[in-house]
Design a protein around this nucleic acid. Structure first.
Lengths: 207, 207
DNA sequence: AGTGGAAGATGACAAACGTCATGTCGTTTT
DNA sequence: AAAACGACATGACGTTTGTCATCTTCCACT
């Protein structure tokens, strides 16, 4: 392997070992990119980011310990100047919005060819943004999350099959209040029942 | 690129473009393996399998059009002598059992390092099996799928938030019959209600 | 001091859900 | 031919869910 001159230093966070390994190998083939380290969950990513101070962090959203969105927010809060690219399966306007709020500079879908990843890393390293074009325009027209925090808590549990009484006990609310919240969210989302509502909310990245 | 002598000819079926591309690139780096073609869903995989007659088919399970399990069964039915390796996220004994019934020779998790994939391809090409060891032992002790086909149909829909009446109409059954089936499956799975039952069944690979 | 808006509770009612016993009607088994 | 079995239906009963109007606190705003 020839030595790279001033390569872009990348930290890769992704919980699926096979994808992580394959992407790292591909990126290493690029003449101007080097993968400093790999993390298998959000906490490890945070630790390695502090330790290595990479130029760019490429991270999945749904990981154990800490999601990619939380990770981006943490880095911003700690004022570590690391540019973040979110790499995820989910084409959800809600996720993109949250990613941008958390200071991410790139948002790329796993649906895209692997070659675009290197390209996005270069763009972001130069200070540009790299947002999936299809998603960027969709996000403009997309409704924003209509759920309150309480509604989200309750809907999440209802979608897992818990009864109103169980949810009420867990959150220290009355049974009727839980039903009221659910009735409200069902109406907001145009669903036919709690399970349908949970399905809809999940599909839009609101859960 | 040097020419390979008598390489193992592989067809790769995986719906996530980035993973598919990255794996194909990695496999091409192996001196004794070549990737003939790539498919992005089950139907395309079936078509390309007939057309190219690869030595080994590496396929995901959850894909559009046709799952990897259905694909394996179809190939077996058509007596195409193609060895199949299932490559999936899910460590579920139910899936492994169905995969083996469908004639698959390998079952590998995406949790494993990418290097194991090439190794599995070689093993399977030589006529051996390549089953994830952790999963193989677990499958031995695991309960088998207790659901009938009807129960599965109904539970799947109930888990998506459809009402008994809707499900009854769709499957040309009576409302009460649907409730009877659900009651039965709830009991079988030790669940507390239909949603809980769907969650349990999904987590075990029975849906 | 007064208004208004969250957050939560209550009670009432209809609809949907979960359970169970029982019944029909073909197929298989013996 | 009788018995057993699987797939589906019915009716009845209690519980849970979804809806709605009404009510109390508490807190913010002016």
């Amino acid at each position: 392997m020839r030595l790279k001159v001033n390569p872009i230093r990348v930290l890769l966070a992704e919980d699926q070992t096979m994808l992580r390994g394959a992407l790292a190998a591909l990126l290493e083939l690029e003449p101007d990119i080097t993968v400093l380290a790999q993390a298998k969950d959000g906490s490890e990513a945070l630790r390695l980011a502090r330790q290595h101070m990479p130029d760019v962090l490429v991270t999945d959203i749904e990981m154990p310990e800490r999601t990619g969105l939380e990770l981006a927010a943490d880095l911003k809060l700690a004022s570590l100047h690391i540019r973040v690219i979110i790499l995820t399966t989910f084409s959800r306007a809600g996720y993109l919005r949250r990613a941008l709020d958390a200071g991410a500079r790139g948002y790329l879908l796993k649906e895209r060819p692997a070659s675009e990843l290197a390209e996005a890393i270069r763009r972001v390293h130069k200070g540009f943004r790299a947002i999936d074009p299809a998603l960027a325009s969709e996000a403009w027209s997309a409704d924003e999350d209509p759920l309150s925090e309480r509604e989200r808590q309750i809907l999440k549990r209802a979608g897992d099959g818990r009864s109103s009484a169980e949810i009420a006990a867990e959150l220290h609310l009355s049974d009727g209040t839980v039903r009221n919240y659910l009735s409200e969210t069902i109406a907001k989302l145009g669903a036919t029942n709690r399970v349908d509502a949970a399905r809809i909310a999940r599909s839009r990245g609101w859960l």
